[in-house]
Write a protein that binds this DNA or RNA. Structure first.
Length: 424
RNA sequence: GGAGAGAUGGCCGAGCGGCUGAAGGCAACGGUUUGCUAAACCGUCAUACGGUUAUAAAGCCGUAUCGGGGGUUCGAAUCCCCCUCUCUCCGCCA
């Protein structure tokens, strides 16, 4: 949630941010609503003060055995006033809250300005795409099906489209990749591994900004809970409604979980293969920091995610998302795109976002500043470290061999137990 | 699923209709004392929001908050209802 106080004191910035995000400006509407809210609230508080005074008088009058009928009649009229003003105030308050919850974060000045992904800015490229001189590289699903280890027919039968069955060595590859990533992040990068709920309540989804705007993208249970679209939702919310100690920051959490997305808006997009699924595995990184730590933590987190690809010797590039392409809660996002020779292009495999105090404000997560002794909102960051399903795709495509087998990256062999995968 | 008990400030814990934003203790912070440590003593010690000053901060004024929501009452931490969560016992179960 954006800071209404900030909007009030820095007029023009929010609207500019929204226009950069390719959204409609709301500042006039927001400020008018806010002003109306505060005017009515102030009035109501005056009535409540009056009520407290009368109530006080009652106690004293009774103690002295005085007549209270005048107080009673005063109270009666006041009560009607309070009732009326409360009826006026509530809808305004609800509208204001609803509006505030639907406004995305203000992008940082560092983000390239533009309406869509064509304005994303590449900042580095690591690794050379392999040259396939003696055969044309296949796409991952062709490799998987040739190996007889990737099955979209039966997954569609037992579930629906956008699911996959992985058999034998590919199932193991998924497991090995996840294990590998978790070990790196916990042993080398200082993250604490956490086993998290995969279903969360509405409040938590609101906290990270999945709700109220993106309800259609989530799977909802009959009991009103939501399947997590990313472990970010579970990890970030751990400290909701809490005041942390500054010395404990930054907190760094990681989890390997399945992620569930309805992909409501992406009909017809990436329908082949397992690039875009309703369910996929992902190792997630979350950091909770102070205001001062957040920028350097963002760079660090991105490097942690890149480190996985470096160790697996997968070529990738890192881009800064443009204002029009970045997510709702983010103020700056790096996407890491892995090279997929089968598609002859770079595809997103990780997204590392800095959310500032946007989520903290929604979740009510603060820390006590040692110097000022005041409670301040924490800053939250999240990143994929990395998407396991897409990483499996990248390994298949980058390490495919002419005869249809797949080599295992050096760093992964101890996790996988074998040096290559060949057909049954 | 059945039966019961409970939820109060950072923690422990009183309170059972007005004098309670909340006793007392612990912790924390500032100070006095002390050669140092310990102890003792004095003081401070919730949060959010609104108003105010020049909507910087602080201050001051106010409102709200004793798990959450609603009700009774002139007045609720205290009484009633609903919900959530925790604990104990029984049943079921990976």
């Amino acid at each position: 949630m954006i800071d209404i106080n900030f909007v009030r004191n820095h007029q023009g910035i929010l609207d500019k941010a929204l226009i950069n995000r390719n959204k409609d400006p709301v500042e006039n509407k927001l400020l008018a609503l806010d002003e109306k809210y505060r005017a009515i609230l102030t009035k109501k508080q005056e009535f409540l003060k009056e009520r407290n005074t009368i109530t006080d008088g009652f106690g004293k009058a009774k103690a002295q055995g005085l007549d209270t009928s005048e107080l009673s009649s005063k109270m009666e009229t006041l009560k009607t006033k309070i009732e009326k003003i409360t009826a006026d105030l509530n809808p305004v308050k609800e509208n204001l809250e609803r509006l505030l919850h639907s406004i995305p974060n203000i992008p940082s000045d560092e983000c390239p300005v533009g309406p869509d992904e064509t304005y994303n800015l590449e900042i580095r490229r690591v690794g050379q795409p392999r040259v396939f001189s003696d055969f044309n590289p296949l796409e991952h699903y062709e490799i998987g099906e040739k190996l007889c280890m990737m099955d979209f027919e039966n997954s569609a039968k037992i579930a629906s489209s956008r699911f996959v069955l992985l058999y034998s060595k590919l199932a193991k590859l998924e497991r090995a990749l996840a294990q590998f990533m978790l070990d790196i992040h916990t042993k080398e990068n200082g993250y604490t591994e956490i086993y998290v709920p995969l279903l969360l309540n509405k409040q938590s989804m609101l906290g990270v900004g999945q709700l109220p705007k993106f309800e259609d993208d989530l799977f909802k249970t009959t009991t009103g809970m939501y399947l997590i679209p990313t472990a970010e939702a579970s990890l970030t919310n751990i400290h909701s409604d809490y005041v942390l100690e500054e010395e404990k920051l930054p907190l760094r959490y990681t989890a390997y979980t399945p992620c569930f997305r309805s992909e409501a808006g992406s009909a017809g997009k990436d329908t082949k293969g397992m690039l875009r699924q309703h369910q996929f595995g992902k190792v997630e990184l979350v950091s909770i920091t102070t205001h001062e730590q957040s920028i350097s933590e963002h760079e660090r987190m991105t490097e942690c995610a890149e480190g996985i690809l470096k160790k697996l010797e997968l070529p990738f590039r890192t881009v800064v998302l443009s204002t029009g392409d970045m997510g709702f809660s983010s103020e700056k996002t790096y996407d890491i795109e892995v090279w997929l020779p089968g598609q002859n292009t770079y595809r997103e495999i990780s997204s590392c976002s800095r959310c500032g105090s946007f989520q903290a404000r929604r979740m009510n997560t603060k820390f006590k500043n040692i110097q000022t002794k005041r409670n301040e909102y924490v800053h939250t960051l999240n990143g994929s470290g990395v998407a396991v399903g897409r990483c499996l795709i990248a390994v298949l495509e980058n390490y495919q061999q002419k005869e249809g087998s797949v080599e295992i990256p050096e760093a992964l062999i101890s996790y996988f137990g074998e040096k290559n995968i060949s057909a049954f």
